[in-house]
Every structure is written in C-alpha cells, then in structure tokens.
Design a protein around this nucleic acid. Sequence first.
DNA 1: TACCATGCGGAGAGAGCCCCCGGTTGGCAA
DNA 2: TTGCCAACCGGGGGCTCTCTCCGCATGGTA
Lengths: 188, 188
Amino acid sequence: MAQVRPMRADARRNYERLLKVAAEAFAEHGESASLDDIAKRAGVGSGTLYRHFPTRQALLEAAYVGRVEALGSRADELAAQLPPGEALTEWLYELCVGSIQVRGLKALLGSAVTDGSTAALTACGTTVRGAADRLIEAARADGFLRADLEPVELLRLAHGVTTAAELADGKGTRIRRYLALVTEGLRA
Amino acid sequence: MAQVRPMRADARRNYERLLKVAAEAFAEHGESASLDDIAKRAGVGSGTLYRHFPTRQALLEAAYVGRVEALGSRADELAAQLPPGEALTEWLYELCVGSIQVRGLKALLGSAVTDGSTAALTACGTTVRGAADRLIEAARADGFLRADLEPVELLRLAHGVTTAAELADGKGTRIRRYLALVTEGLRA
DNA sequence: TACCATGCGGAGAGAGCCCCCGGTTGGCAA
DNA sequence: TTGCCAACCGGGGGCTCTCTCCGCATGGTA
C-alpha cells in the first residue's frame, strides 16, 4: 500500500530549493520566518510550498533533519573518544550551542521532547532521543549520573538551560556555566 | 519637568478597562493574544489601546504589575515563616507555577532577567530581582546555596525550569521535580 | 456657557497565513 | 515522435493581525 511513485522532476527540484532556502531563512529569522517569503525566495508560489510542507513544523523539521542527524552521530563519536561523563557533558554543550546559534533548531528540538506533541514525533525526536539514551546509559553505568534521571528529562532540562543562556546574552556565552550549575547542583 | 497633570476621566476609565481585559486575555491566550481584540473587548478603538500602551510589552507589564508585586511580598512572607533554604525553594516553586498558569506572565518575567533588554527593565524587573536578592542572600548565609551564584542567574535558571516543565505536560506537574533536580544536581 | 486641548475611534495600509483552482508540463504509452 | 492526462504549478484572494493617522467628540476650566 501507499505506492510511492517517485516525484516528478519539477516537483523534486522545487522541493529541494525550498529546503535550502528554508534552512537559511529559519537560521536567520528564527522559527517564525515568513513562509510566503521563503516561497518567493525559492522562486515558487506559496501554494507549492504548502503542498510540500503542510505546516510550518513540517518544513522546519525537513530543513533540519540533517543537522539533527549530525547531532546523533556526534554522540557516538564523543562516546568513542571520551569517558562517559565527559562525552555526555560535551554533547549537551554542543546541543545547546546549536540550539542557540541555529535559530529555529531550538524550537524543533523542543517539540521533539514535548509530551502532548502530535503522536509520533518523527525522525528528529527519535534520533535525538536515541543519542541521549546511549550517552546517558553509559554515563549512568559509570556512576556519573543519578539513577532516577530519565533521558527525556535531561533533554528537557538542556532545553531549559538553553533558554536561560539565551536570556543572559542571546549568544550562548553562558551555556557552559549554566550546564555546570545544573549538573553539579546549586547547593553550597 | 514632566509636568504630570492628572488623566482626564474618560482616559482613566479606558485605561483601567484595558488593563482588566488585557490581564484576562493574556492569561487565556498567552502573550500573543490579539491586541485589537483586547481593544474591542474593552469597548475602545485600537488607537486608544496603542496610545496608552505603545507596545505589547508595555501592556503586558502594566497588566501584571500587581501579580509581580504579590510575588515580591510573598517572598518576605515566606522568609518570615520558613528557614532560608525552604523559603527560597518554595518561592521559586510559586514563581514557576505562576509562570505556567498565568500565560503571559512567563514572558514578562523572562524579559525582566534578559540582559540585552531595553535600558531600565522597569518595575517588574526591580521587584522580582529584589525579592530574589533577599531570599538568596539569606539562603547563602545559611550555607544552603553555593557562594558563586548570582541572583539573576538563579532567576534565569528558574525560567529555564519552567520551560522544561512546560515541555513535559504544559501544566506544571513536573516543576517540583525539575526544581529539585537542578538544586541538588544531576550527579549520582 | 463657551472654548480648546486632550483624548477617542475606526478606517486603512502593510504583512502574513493558507486555500483554492485554472493553467501548465513531465513522463509514459502507443 | 506524438499525444494524453495525472501531477504539479503559481499566485490571486479571503482572512487575521498590527499599528498609524486624522477628523471628531468631550471633559475640564475660565
């Protein structure tokens, strides 16, 4: 079922140009970049954009799958070359930095760890949750993390840290500091 | 300078109705509630709304000063009847709960601890920072908090915790848990 | 009572979102 | 090659929202 006949050549062309332009636009203006504008810049009508990507979320997701997957493989890379605790710490840092630098990515990652989200949260959610699972499992086995911490909770807290760092200066300078505060606790 | 002649009666009437309606609207629809709609519901033209409150931020702020001030006095109340550490913890909890339950308040409190914010962040910023200062100073003196923690950092982290809890279920059920995680740290 | 600064209101320009449908075209079958 | 038609295109248009502008109403005062 769901016979997937290949896209017509013109459709595929438009699809790809939209993705490219969208990634730029979201990075520049954040997740609320104008969709009509993206269509215009890609040289297609807005109808075409909405046919390929029914919702803003769909476009956002499609535009950044690559980046999210890079985050996933980066996790394995770090796991291979650092002790579990450090690998996790560094990965979280890169996650937060990406969330701030690539505007729009934060929104995507956020919705990937939202509970009430529409059913299956797609590739991105799976990818990033999977990566986190692996790193956390290792870190926990190594005695670095408390045992009662769910992976998704850590991802949500990382999102929170990003938000906090954004409030500070909008540029992510404070990420390392806030991440350390959260990891080590606020107690004397 | 800045001769402050009292508002004309009709102006004052409109001003107050706008505030009341705005508080309801922001609470219901979040900070992006429609301003024209608020004007309509208050029975005034949109021009009137924009004259009294030039920006969305100004209206948001004016609509919630009361609530923010309540948060300020609540801090002293708690300080008077609980040990410093508990007072701080409880206050932070109430801060986060308010941020989630009263949609729009979160945005206001967030901008109150933003660095690049436009010059003087007004009454709300001062109030909430003041309250935090007092509680934190006491908690620190009591050996509850690490010494290198700036009050504004804690407020930002609280904002982050709120964001994280919002991702979880949108209702704030997880606030206590996440606040505890951050306070105690994630280490084993 | 009459004057006029102060304040009102809503029309309208501008920007976005998204749907819809008449026209076009890629790709296949003959 | 040619011709056909499903798939696809594009942008007009209805809607919502923001924010400004200016002719008109009215509260407060002399």
